[in-house]
Simulated assay, not measured.
Amino acid sequence: MAGTLLVPPSGIPLERLVQMAMERGYTAQGEMFSVADMGRLAQEALGCQAELLCGGLGGPNRDHVLRHLVTGHPLLIPYDEDFNHEPCQRRGCKAHWAVSAGVLLGVQHVPGLSYAEDPDLPGLFHPAPGMPHQPPSLPEEGSPGAVYLLSKQGKSWHYQLWDYDQVRDSNLQLTDFSPTRAADGREYVVPAGGVRAGLCGQALLLRPQDSSPKPAAALNQGTGPQPQPGSVTV
């Protein structure tokens, strides 16, 4: 999923990715409990740059993550998946991966003329193609409902808008290996230190080897109704 968002997009089949991961000892059943291993796999298989982020998605890492998404590059995030694929907190027992492909920012003013208003959703602005873009001002951490990640989980057919703080909190509490998996008699590759050491507070920022800025932020001006998941083009 992340490979299709890189430039040039990766055409490597999923089966080949799993085979490579198994050959290198990263996985036994297709599971991936190490962000570091996922980064190594991405670099080799997709030919991209992979930056391992530690310390969670908040604090000083927050602006770094948002600016990465604004440039148009994908973010891989381990998190606990709820029944509707959205982030929840199950201490890692429902740990899955998601890819974020863009960001929706709630702002008071649209920065310059390089953003075009969506024809169907008043108050929603996209970067205008072919124009230089002034990066938008990032809302301060703790602003309610100000930042949403355009994200997708592999079992879902659609992208969804996830509140940034919910993603941050879900990613930061991945500590335990699922008792169901521990009791199913199958072999899994879990790094030294367990799920906490392999996933907790970590994410992966992917960039093309020869990356160039490509803004991908959608701006929602004012405090009107939020767009529904799947309705935003980024």
Rank of each mutant, 00 (worst) to 15 (best):
G3I: 11
P8S: 03
P9S: 06
S10H: 03
G11V: 09
G11S: 14
L14C: 06
L17G: 07
M22H: 07
R24T: 00
A28P: 01
E31A: 01
F33D: 00
F33W: 12
F33Q: 03
S34L: 12
A36E: 11
G39E: 12
G39F: 04
L41W: 05
A45F: 04
C48F: 13
A50H: 10
E51D: 10
L57Q: 08
G58L: 15
G58D: 10
G58E: 12
P60W: 07
N61W: 05
H64T: 14
L66A: 05
L66N: 05
L69V: 10
T71P: 00
H73D: 13
P74M: 05
L75F: 01
P78L: 15
Y79M: 15
N84H: 07
E86A: 13
R90M: 12
C93K: 14
K94V: 03
A95V: 13
H96R: 15
H96M: 05
H96P: 01
H96G: 01
W97Y: 07
S100P: 01
G106W: 15
Q108V: 09
V110G: 03
G112I: 01
G112P: 02
P119S: 12
L121E: 00
P122R: 15
L124T: 07
H126C: 10
P129I: 12
P132S: 08
P135D: 00
P136H: 05
P139M: 14
E141N: 03
G142N: 11
S143P: 01
S143Q: 14
P144D: 00
P144A: 00
G145W: 13
G145S: 06
G145L: 08
V147D: 02
Y148H: 14
Y148I: 06
L149E: 00
L149D: 02
L150E: 00
K152F: 04
Q153I: 08
G154L: 05
S156D: 15
Y159Q: 08
Q160V: 06
W162C: 13
Q166F: 00
Q166R: 15
R168I: 01
S170N: 09
N171D: 03
L172T: 05
L174W: 03
T175N: 07
F177H: 08
F177L: 15
S178P: 04
T180A: 13
R181V: 07
D184V: 02
D184Q: 08
V189Y: 06
A192K: 03
L199G: 00
G201A: 06
G201L: 03
G201V: 07
L205D: 03
R207V: 07
R207Q: 14
P208E: 05
D210T: 10
K214A: 14
A216M: 09
A217I: 05
A217T: 10
A217C: 13
L219P: 02
T223H: 15
Q228M: 13
P229M: 09
G230F: 10
G230I: 13
S231G: 09
V234S: 13
V234R: 06
